[in-house]
Design a protein around this nucleic acid. Structure first.
Length: 558
DNA sequence: CCCCCCCC
């Protein structure tokens, strides 16, 4: 066939707002559209259906790599497996319709085709007028004057979620703009976007005034953007917005995004205004992308930089109780809960939850915990996870990965020996803490660096001895009495107190110590305090001794 | 117009 299987007439059809399944087209050219930085890079394609030429096709960003790897050269024949259309620059002259290619299959390599098929002619940008009268519910055509309150949104949405197939839906879709096309220079737009995350309501009070706000991160095929709602808009939309749902949104104010506060791939962010209209799109399934996760094995978190963002899915192996305390620096009352997550990389990581997240966590169950955009932080050489503004936590999500990790956990994983990437060793994750004598600690010059170093040792050391400070909690643990009891003994029952202190003399413990050079005037001195104390595990200690003996003598080594 | 995201 001379058309080489191209779907002749496809382009004219989509310009009418019709949809066709799996059209086949030929690529005749491509062009890189530079955004600000690689994150907003886009590729525009010149395509042909054998009859018409069309230059407003764009690759969804997740297909950018195909273009970069030169998999889509001139003359390539592709099948478009999934696409959406959007209208940009709609005005008196008509509209410009953009075809966004979301999934494609290369049917024949360009070099094998080697020529332009047929004699396709350029399409005009102004096809037949869209049927405006059929779409009273489109946010863009519905003046804000008549849509000023939240109550009307539900009913206004009816024609978009109607039962009959096809046309109704494509009317709604035909009027939406890709998020990646939005800029502050153009305010006539409607986006159709899925909510990825939603913050809580936060209030502020400063020199400029006070108020409240919430923000949400939304996405479509083309990209993502943050939307913030202040004061009235916060009240109006907070309850309405639900994570994962799809909404039509129009008439927000765009401004350059402050990259310091977001990792979203967009140069802009937006703020809702009095004119903003938000409508839920109730039948968006299939036409909208699902939220994408880039799960990383927990073991890999060990190698990540502090402040990196990460998606993780793991089993909750342990959850502490909620601890309430006053932050020493800020004086704030804080509530936190530490969750231990494990996965089949045989690693665990601490997730710190705060406030209501901590309170509401179902600690008595073993949920699968999904984190999107969790933040990596570092403490004492170990890595842990926390949630920030754009982070999402889901429990027991119905995802294959979630079932997998539960399967692993329930078939031995819960008993598996895992190494903690959160261990505060100062060394690589998973490497057990180094055992040192006092002499070795001195030789290594521990404590000389900026950061305190950690080391373990055995009291009763054969090389030396040292005064070590033991703070409240550990002292209570060692002495088996509360600090109040010890304090009152010291004051009123000196003999009792002395007995108490003598009782732990010559006892063996395993200590983890912190040492740091501090200056007393000109004099540098290593100040050492205990970080943890535990009874001697003779099995473990014997293993260490045997290993040392083997290393010294060479006996029993392979 | 926020922009804190905590603690050891």
């Amino acid at each position: 066939m001379s058309s080489h299987g191209l779907t002749v007439g496809f382009l004219a059809e989509i310009m009418q707002g019709n949809e066709l399944q799996n059209p086949v087209v030929q690529i005749l050219g491509s062009k890189r559209i530079a955004g600000n930085g690689e994150q907003s890079e886009r590729f525009r394609l010149l395509i042909s259906d054998g009859k018409s030429l069309y230059s407003f096709a764009m690759l969804a960003t997740q297909l950018n790599d195909l273009q970069k790897q030169d998999k889509l050269p001139q003359y390539t024949i592709i099948r478009i497996d999934r696409y959406t259309t959007s209208v940009v620059n709609r005005n008196e002259k008509g509209e410009k319709r953009v075809l966004i290619i979301v999934e494609l299959t290369v049917l024949k390599e360009g070099s094998l085709v080697g020529e332009k098929i047929g004699d396709p002619q350029p399409m005009t940008d102004t096809p037949s007028q869209p049927a405006t009268t059929q779409a009273p519910a489109r946010p863009m055509d519905t003046g804000s004057n008549t849509m000023g309150n939240g109550a009307s949104y539900g009913s206004a949405n009816r024609s978009l979620s109607g039962g009959s197939a096809g046309p109704t839906q494509s009317i709604g879709d035909s009027l939406t703009h890709p998020i990646s096309s939005l800029s502050p220079y153009q305010n006539k737009w409607v986006i159709k976007a899925r909510v990825m995350s939603k913050s809580g309501i936060r209030t502020w009070s400063n020199a400029k005034g006070e108020g409240k706000l919430f923000s949400m991160d939304v996405m479509d095929e083309s990209g993502e953007i943050r939307i913030t709602a202040f004061k009235e808009q916060c009240d109006r939309y907070y309850d309405m917005i639900e994570v994962e749902k799809v909404y039509f949104i129009s008439k927000c104010q765009l401004k350059p995004a402050n990259k310091q506060y977001t990792s979203l791939k967009n140069d802009y962010e937006m703020t809702m205004t009095n004119d903003t209209i938000v409508q839920e799109c109730k039948d968006a399934d299939g036409s909208m992308p699902e939220i994408q996760y880039n799960f990383v094995p927990i073991s890999q978190i060990a190698n990540m930089e502090p402040n990196a963002m990460v998606d993780v899915i793991g089993m909750c192996k342990d959850a502490s109780d909620v601890v309430q305390f006053t932050a020493k620096t800020s004086g704030r009352e804080l509530r936190k809960r530490e969750i231990t997550l494990v996965d089949s990389s045989n690693a665990s990581v601490q997730l710190t939850l705060w406030g209501d997240d901590a309170q509401n966590f179902p600690a008595t169950t073993h949920p699968v915990v999904l984190l999107k955009g969790a933040r990596v932080s570092e403490f004492g050489g170990g890595k842990s996870l926390g949630l920030i503004g754009g982070s999402v936590m889901k429990l027991n999500p119905d995802l294959e990965m979630a079932h997998k990790v539960r399967g692993w956990f329930e078939n031995g994983g819960s008993e598996a020996s895992v190494s903690s990437v959160s261990a505060r060793t100062g060394g690589a994750a998973g490497v057990s803490t180094e055992w040192l004598s006092f002499q070795e600690a001195k030789d290594k010059n521990l404590g000389a660096g900026d950061k305190p170093d950690y080391f373990q040792m055995l009291i009763g050391d054969w090389t030396s001895n040292r005064w070590v400070t033991v703070f409240t909690e550990l002292a209570e643990e060692m002495l088996g009495k509360s600090s109040q009891e010890i304090g009152s003994s010291l004051e009123y029952q000196k003999e009792e107190a002395e007995k108490l202190f003598t009782s732990i003399s010559f006892k063996s413990f395993v200590f983890k110590l912190r040492t740091k050079v501090e200056y007393f005037g000109e004099q540098p001195r290593n100040k050492t305090s205990a970080v943890s104390v535990a009874p001697v595990n003779h099995k473990e200690y014997n293993a260490l001794l045997i290993k040392s003996i083997q290393e010294l003598t060479g006996v029993g080594k392979n």
